[in-house]
């Protein structure tokens, strides 16, 4: 018992260091930024526009790719096939590759020389430097979070329940929408929250695809480069608060559904 307590104390001490490592820089930034600077920055239209752009591009990325990713997650959860490991590896690829490299890859994919770029320009859209391009870059780096969470969610749905529903005369599509999807929804929602949050905070891939219009992480970097720490800090503080508010609100929504 004594040994256990000692180990516990050591672990608590080590864990506290980690927590301090996360909290201290953030707290330091908050404390060293004056209230007046924050208010002035919040009134800045450029800042407001960039925060709004960041939020809605990440929203579009999350919801659009959710429609594509959820069926794939279901297939991966329910089927065993020879290339499954390969597909799972591909899904995790965006997590391991440097995000600036991901940005270069996306840029190569959406320039006017490519099929995607040509198709978009047909509709008068130049994806490079466009909110859709930003969404694509955000989706590329954040989609693994949604896919993996949704896959785990579907794995957790007993296939017996799906079989029971089929046995009760439901079509496979009705079984998916009335049994599998509602029962995996907790995980899917968590995955969407993570994807949204990860998309919002993306810098490396987005800065290559679209320096302008400027999402907030790029704006923070730009202000830091051009005017220094004092000028970049209030934008960072405001953006962190906005991210936290969204994160908490979405988590609460997810917990509400859980009940």
């Amino acid at each position: 018992m004594n040994n256990y307590s000692t180990i516990n104390l050591i672990f608590i001490f080590l864990g506290s260091l980690v927590l301090l490592f996360i909290v201290a820089p953030l707290l330091g930034m908050f404390l060293s930024t004056s209230y007046i600077d924050i208010v002035d920055t919040a009134k800045d239209v450029e800042v407001q526009n960039s925060i709004w752009l960041t939020l809605y591009t990440s929203f579009i990325a999350t919801f659009t790719f959710a429609i594509l990713a959820i069926p794939l997650a279901y297939i991966l959860a329910r089927n065993d096939f020879w290339a499954k490991r390969l597909v799972l590896g591909i899904i995790d690829l965006p997590i391991v590759i440097p995000h600036s490299a991901a940005g270069i890859a996306i840029l190569g994919f959406i320039t006017r020389d490519t099929v995607v770029g040509k198709t978009a320009s047909h509709f008068g859209i130049d994806l490079v430097g466009h909110p859709i391009g930003i969404s694509l870059a955000m989706a590329f780096v954040s989609i693994p979070y949604l896919l993996n969470a949704a896959k785990d969610g579907f794995v957790g749905v007993p296939d017996r329940l799906e079989k029971a529903a089929l046995n009760l005369g439901a079509s496979p599509i009705r079984v998916f929408f009335t049994i599998s999807l509602p029962l995996a929804w907790r995980n899917i929602l968590s995955g969407m929250i993570l994807m949204f949050a990860r998309g919002m905070s993306e810098f490396g891939a987005v800065v290559i695809v679209a320096y302008h219009p400027m999402i907030t992480p790029v704006q923070i970097y730009e202000r830091f480069g051009a005017f220094g720490l004092k000028y970049a800090r209030p934008v960072a503080v405001i953006f962190i608060v906005v991210c936290l508010l969204f994160f908490i609100a979405l988590r609460m929504l997810s917990n509400e559904r859980r009940k």
């Binding site: 005369g169 439901a170 029962l183």
Partner: peptide, 30 residues
Amino acid sequence: QKRQMGLVFQDYAVFPHKTVFQNIAYPLYS
């Protein structure tokens, strides 16, 4: 779904996210 062979599973397989009413009503919609 076309056989109409009603199987009651050993562990019941009652849908946990649906009320008793919704569970019983499930096959009736089809």
